Amino acid sequence: MTTSNIALAGAEQFAAGSVIKNYGKHAKVQQDLNFDKSALFKVAFDVSEQGKVGEVNRKIETLARFINMHVANGVPAENIHLALVVHGKAGFDLLKASLYQEKFKKTNANSALLQDLMKNQVQVYLCGQSAAYYDIEHELLEPGVKMALSAMTAHAVLNSKGYSLNPF
């Protein structure tokens, strides 16, 4: 076995993707789990932890990595349908840039990432119960972010539409 086709340890092995260029670096790996490259991927991601203030929330960036690495491995971008369900303090990462700046005195590094994700068929939902608890009104959110009754409801609805839940 040669090492040219396997992932080597180290951040330098991770490269930007062709779809979401500024986020979602991934490594080339020798894989043993084959998948149908023409399959439709419908996956929901759950994020409850707020990222470090002023930095990209790495859990949100995971969606960019999912898109980039699958497209790099032959899956058409139009076959990738992702949903981001946000609850808890992570809701603050969905604030409009100006409001985030006002609240935290730092730039919302998630704003551009969220816009890139939504331009690539990602649906972003904020738990309405968390929003009510943290006083985050719909008009405070990045354009395109949708409000759900709850994170539980969003996951139930997405599951009924064939979305699997990413376990991490």
Rank of each mutant, 00 (worst) to 15 (best):
M1P: 03
T2S: 13
N5S: 12
I6H: 13
A7P: 15
A15M: 12
S18F: 08
V19Q: 04
G24R: 00
V29P: 03
Q31H: 14
D32V: 15
N34S: 15
D36S: 09
K37Q: 12
K37E: 11
L40K: 12
L40W: 10
V43L: 12
V47A: 08
V53E: 06
R58Q: 14
K59H: 15
I60Y: 05
T62A: 14
T62M: 15
V71L: 04
V71C: 05
V75T: 10
V75D: 03
P76E: 09
A77C: 11
E78I: 09
E78H: 08
I80Y: 03
A83C: 07
L84A: 02
V86K: 00
H87I: 07
G88Y: 05
A90K: 02
F92Y: 10
D93N: 06
A97E: 10
A97L: 11
S98H: 12
L99D: 05
Y100K: 04
Q101D: 13
Q101Y: 09
F104A: 01
K105N: 08
K105M: 06
N108L: 04
L113H: 04
L113Q: 04
L114Q: 02
M118C: 06
K119H: 14
N120C: 05
Q121E: 06
Q123G: 11
G128D: 02
Q129C: 03
Q129G: 02
Y134A: 01
E137C: 11
E139Q: 12
L141R: 05
G144Y: 02
G144I: 01
K146P: 09
A151F: 03
A151Y: 01
T153H: 14
A154K: 01
A156K: 08
A156Q: 08
L158E: 06
L158M: 09
G162N: 00
S164I: 12
N166M: 13
N166S: 13
F168K: 13
